[in-house]
Write a protein that binds this DNA or RNA. Structure first.
Lengths: 161, 161
DNA sequence: GTGGGGCTTCCCACTCTGGGAAGGTCAAGT
DNA sequence: ACTTGACCTTCCCAGAGTGGGAAGCCCCAC
């Protein structure tokens, strides 16, 4: 089958199939005499594998490793599990990060009248000095407290480095 | 002050400050005779505002709007609140998506021995046709229960990933 | 043989951030 | 003065992942 049909039956766009081939995630497809890419059923299975893995949020790098393990009959399930759990950790980390942002914003929005008047705790928070904002959201400041002195230190003859 | 000091005292890298200027998020900085960018305290406040907004996950586009509102004394807090709540919705949507991925993977990983043997439910899931995979994880899909066909629907629009 | 839809490659867009090269500038120490 | 090292400038390139679109060839049914 041609790339269009492979795309339709795998859920991966033709554009992406070519891209995956270009970056080495897939081995180059066979070609017809006129240069069209030709796909077999097993190619489509691999594409579905990729699609499903993308849906679960795996990076293309991880998918490459998973594909290799999938094709290796002598693999250890431990290797697969390791990749999956590392990804879960990453997902949990991101979720916590987003959750923290959402909570902060919800809190601020609750205290914003949301009317025609200009006063707004949301803008006040954004405009607040880093330290104050950091204290309010319970996240460490991005600037260490002694940064001010560091500037002077760097001006000295032989900065520590 | 020069860009380096502005960067250190705002938490935004010099690289990014130049970039924000280039894309019009910031108006062009004043220059010294030798061409160095010069920043005032109020420029630093704006940079901190941007930094804080980035920490809360706002896109540069939203930040541009927030900056304009911040500077507009005749603003309506409703406009600010609208932007913030739209962002919260987006965050909640992403959280739900990641949460669903994480739950699916945790479920699969729990059933994977993770030893030297090749058998692995994780790979089995990835390799299975979409429908079957969804059924095996005991959830119609990682999205809402009434969207079993979402995988197909998502082919055209684009998922935020 | 013609038209429409599929295929090819190639470049550009987006998001946001960083790396690094080549070169000019400033301020200090020798 | 001269050197040195930190700092600044611009410009290009990289990533991750996807899409849009142009220019041009191919295939098949009518």
């Amino acid at each position: 089958m041609n790339i269009g049909e492979a795309a339709r039956s795998s859920g991966v766009s033709a554009k992406m199939i070519r891209h995956y081939e270009a970056i080495g995630l897939l081995s180059p497809a066979a070609r017809s005499r006129s240069g069209y890419r030709i796909y077999s059923d097993s190619d489509v299975y691999a594409l579905r594998f990729i699609r499903r893995a993308r849906d679960l949020g795996f990076s293309l790098h991880q998918i490459k490793q998973l594909l290799e393990l999938w094709r290796d009959r002598r693999r250890s399930s431990a290797d697969v599990k390791r990749i999956a759990l590392a990804h879960v950790d990453e997902l949990r980390r991101k979720i916590a990060e987003l959750e923290s942002m959402a909570r902060t914003l919800e809190h601020l929005a609750r205290h914003c009248h949301g009317d025609h008047r200009p006063e707004c705790p949301i803008l006040d928070d954004l405009a607040a000095p880093a330290g104050a904002a950091a204290r309010r959201t319970k996240r460490p400041s991005y600037a260490s407290p002694d940064k001010t002195d560091e500037r002077h230190a760097r001006r000295s003859p032989h900065p520590a480095r």
